[in-house]
Design a protein around this nucleic acid. Structure first.
Lengths: 191, 191
DNA sequence: CAAGTGATGGGACTTGGTCTCATCAACCGT
DNA sequence: ACGGTTGATGAGACCAAGTCCCATCACTTG
């Protein structure tokens, strides 16, 4: 791997985050990111499939963790129990270096429509993957839909809380999921 | 309005849908869409802010309907009751001509990542708007989050069911929401 | 030491998207 | 009837995202 300066991907991520932070996403050209990382546009697109993706790298790994987490939940667990398994499994990634930039990353994404669009797609991908895992366990389609959607909501809420207050992500996510479940079962019908 | 050939926007939508259908989204250039509609690239971008948006026009109107539907729900209604008001209010748009192309539109979107991305953003926008409306009614933040997320899920499921089986959209959506609610309140805790 | 491998550089090319200016049909007031 | 205004369009320059192809160069292997 490291025949030239190592960690080209990480350098690109850091350069991008810095530049987006300093001058905004729209005012930053891919060539500029590459230049700051000591690379070229060609190399940039070899590492990330487009300009946005540099802020979302590593999320493919999360899909695997979700699948494994759901499949690995005890057989006795219900749909939400399996979803909890997914959230807990994701914790290992969130505590790594790559996510040290979490708050800056969130701020940059929130400030730009294109990036929020990509974020929405990623979240939808999480929900899809959770739903597929639940169906695999024999959960009925409707319940799988509801549980995966609530699971992603708990993930979003738990992630935000974890960035603010810190602590063990697995624990925070577990609490967020229980919170969401409590609110869901308390919902009254329309009339 | 119609000093030249009228309905430039509609012509562009139809041309785009045809071309995407025939040769795929990626193999179609904006200039080509404009040409088939008897217009130019310049005019295309005056009607739609980018290549994707031609498949999502009119959804801004839905945001207003959501807001009005939630604000107009009876005071006695709970969070989900207000969400039901939003779904019912959206029905008027879905039954109009512009949505006659629903099935083709869904198929084109499903076949392309860029378009699914835009779709995910639109759905997130619906949820955001629902949540804001619920907060306005004094619904606690957590409940607003859960209810709006379930509302969008019911919208997606109801829309698909309506495209398949037809009938009155308001009624189909109401049933879908009740279905989702039933599944949500039946969820067991993790352990 | 020669051949091979893999990450990079470089540059041509297409297309999405912006911007500015010209055009031209309908409308409006005198 | 006439000149000015308005608003949608056309035309074309221009920039950046993204694709493609080929050259290069560091390091590895036989």
């Amino acid at each position: 791997m490291g025949r030239w300066e190592p960690d080209a991907g990480d350098r690109l991520v850091r350069a991008a985050l810095d530049l987006f932070d300093e001058q905004g996403y729209e005012n930053t050209a891919v060539a500029q990111i590459a230049e700051r990382a000591g690379l070229t546009k060609s190399t940039y697109f070899r590492h990330f499939r487009d300009k946005r993706e540099v802020l979302f790298s590593g999320q493919d790994r999360l899909l695997e963790l979700i699948t494994d987490g759901i499949a690995g939940a005890p057989e006795s667990a219900g749909a939400l129990g399996a979803v909890e398994g997914a959230l807990v499994a994701m914790a290992v990634t969130f505590t790594q270096d790559r996510w040290a930039n979490g708050p800056r990353r969130l701020a940059v994404i929130a400030a730009n429509d294109e990036l929020r669009e990509r974020d929405a797609l990623k979240m939808a991908g999480f929900a899809r993957t959770m739903k597929a895992g639940l169906l695999e366990r024999g959960v009925p389609e409707l319940d799988a839909d509801v549980a995966s959607e609530l699971g992603v909501l708990a993930l979003r809420r738990g992630y935000a809380q974890w960035l603010e207050a810190g602590g063990d992500f697995a624990e925070v996510a577990r609490r967020a999921l229980e919170e969401v479940r409590g609110a869901a079962v308390g919902l009254e019908g329309a009339e």
